[in-house]
């Protein structure tokens, strides 16, 4: 401690900017955390690539000895393709529906002078606090009453509903930054509300739209709770539930299980590689809920 402080004072005398100095304490923590994060991911990839026999023989952190793609074939044989397609459908439908509902709402919340609109906005703000876990029983009741139980639609509906408050909040705060003068200028050219939204508000809030879409898509792709209580059959299964099921079946086939886990996360890893910025922005939204 004293040493750190002394060194700090010493450096200060030399007039260096603080943030440019190496911070050893945090640096060590960062390296330890790095190992903690990487070990499970390394094991996941390694196990997915080796045969069951070499999984049982090898040391925990050893390099894979017999690399094979067989586990992936095995996973696809057990119907994982179907689960991935189902998940993709749910993901696209949820993200599209959320944006379609949220954007006009956010636009009206920013632009409208109606009291009712600001009242509804307050409702959405309060809705941020509704925990999805606590509503699974009535959601189950609603979905069965609507004869939607065990369908992909059943997953999309509550997923969208619980994504709306944050999406509207993010979009509305982006739309507030569009200067009023632009709306006025475009009105002089003879534009109504629809045209103002379409050719002014929409292009100017493209970044937030992307963030919101990514947030909704990520939520839907990784969703577990609603599929768990609202679907049942193999035909309607999404990937997260597929993993949960495999985990019961594959108890002795860890490489197969890890191959499935890797496949389930693969599309997102690819997006992360190419569009890291959007994904991080979207993730900030995820936890913001």
């Amino acid at each position: 401690m004293a040493d750190v402080r002394l060194r700090g004072a010493h450096r200060a005398v030399r007039g260096r900017r603080l943030t440019e100095r190496p911070n050893w304490g945090a640096g060590v923590a960062a390296v330890v955390w790095l190992a903690f994060v990487i070990i499970p991911i390394y094991l996941m990839v390694k196990d997915a690539l080796q045969t069951t026999d070499s999984y049982l023989d090898g040391g925990p952190l050893s390099l894979p000895r017999h690399v094979t793609g067989h586990n992936f074939v095995d996973v696809f044989d057990r119907g994982f393709t179907r689960y991935l397609i189902n998940t993709a459908i749910v993901t696209v439908a949820s993200a599209a529906l959320t944006v379609l509902l949220a954007f006009p709402a956010a636009y009206a919340i920013v632009r409208s002078r109606s009291r009712a609109v600001s009242g509804i906005f307050r409702l959405f703000l309060a809705g941020l606090a509704i925990p999805a876990q606590a509503t699974i029983i009535p959601v189950y009741l609603l979905i069965t009453r609507m004869h939607l139980y065990d369908s992909l639609t059943a997953i999309v509906l509550p997923t969208v509903a619980f994504g709306l408050p944050l999406s509207i909040l993010v979009l509305a705060s982006a739309l507030r930054d569009v200067p009023r003068e632009l709306y006025e200028a475009m009105t002089l050219e003879g534009g109504g509300s629809v045209r103002l939204m379409w050719s002014l508000a929409l292009p100017l809030s493209r970044a937030s739209l992307t963030t919101v879409s990514v947030y909704c898509a990520l939520n839907a792709w990784n969703g577990f709770l609603f599929p768990l209580i609202l679907t049942q059959s193999d035909e309607q299964r999404v990937q997260t539930l597929g993993l949960y099921n495999f985990q019961g079946q594959f108890s002795s086939n860890i490489p197969g299980l890890m191959a499935a886990v890797l496949l389930s996360a693969f599309p997102i890893f690819v997006v992360y590689l190419f569009a890291r910025r959007w994904l991080v922005a979207g993730m900030a939204g995820v936890g913001g809920k």
């Binding site: 636009y107 632009r111 409208s112 475009m186 109504g192 509300s193």
Partner: peptide, 9 residues
């Protein structure tokens, strides 16, 4: 400039 109404939300 046109103001959207309640219908939008």
């Amino acid at each position: 400039a046109a103001r959207p109404g309640v219908l939008w939300v």
